[in-house]
């Protein structure tokens, strides 16, 4: 197909405003449709997961990055390549657990929350929860089960935005039954 031809390693970029506002419209709609913030958080995570599952393919195709040796390398690739490629920002990787299975991404800027304020009646809403789902979904597709959650968020008055990622296990490839 002709679409294949304009697929280069450098993905096409666009102004972040449309992206930011579109995301805002989506979250607003979810808040109208669901009774409480927990449900909205869950829905955002689910959508993020669906995005992640598809995004990883795009990512591998464009970045031509091979298999990571360890979780530290994974963390660096997520922060320096993936975030930069898709959201135009590079979070820093810090707060490693001694065992090396847990780290934090500190986001200095988060294009999802430009010009966003949380109203008082939504104080349990995790506005950018889509990111957690996307990280979880994409890593699952490369056989890594991870736990991802926001621990700090500037929207709720914290000084920084921090996403905590914890490695759970390698997912063994299960061949479908009867398929040798």
């Amino acid at each position: 197909m002709s679409r294949q031809s304009n697929r280069t390693t450098d993905s096409k970029k666009m102004n972040s405003e449309l992206f930011t506002l579109t995301y805002g419209a989506l979250v607003t709609q979810l808040c109208k449709d669901y009774e409480n913030d927990e449900e909205v958080n869950k829905q955002l995570d689910k959508m993020g997961y669906n995005i992640g599952v598809r995004l990883i393919e795009d990512f591998l195709a464009r970045s031509s990055i091979g298999r990571c040796q360890d979780f530290r390398e994974t963390a660096d690739v997520i922060a320096k390549v993936a975030f930069k490629m898709y959201l135009g920002t590079t979070p820093s990787v810090t707060n490693w657990s001694p065992a090396g299975d847990e780290f934090s991404l500190i986001l200095e800027s988060n294009p999802l929350v430009d010009f966003v304020e949380l109203p008082d009646n939504h104080n349990t809403l995790i506005y950018s929860n889509l990111l957690c789902g996307a990280l979880r979904g994409s890593l699952e597709m490369v056989q890594m089960a991870v736990d991802v959650k926001f621990v700090q968020d500037t929207l709720r008055g914290d000084n920084v935005t921090e996403i905590r990622m914890k490695f759970i296990k390698r997912i063994e490839e299960n061949l479908p039954a009867g398929d040798e």
Binding site: K13, M14, M47, G88
Partner: peptide, 21 residues
């Protein structure tokens, strides 16, 4: 005007989730 640029793929996937929802 914000200087950050996001990728069109990210937008396309977000929009697709929106339409599906």
């Amino acid at each position: 005007r914000p200087k950050t640029k996001v990728s069109v793929s990210a937008f396309a996937l977000l929009f697709s989730e929106m339409v599906q929802y």
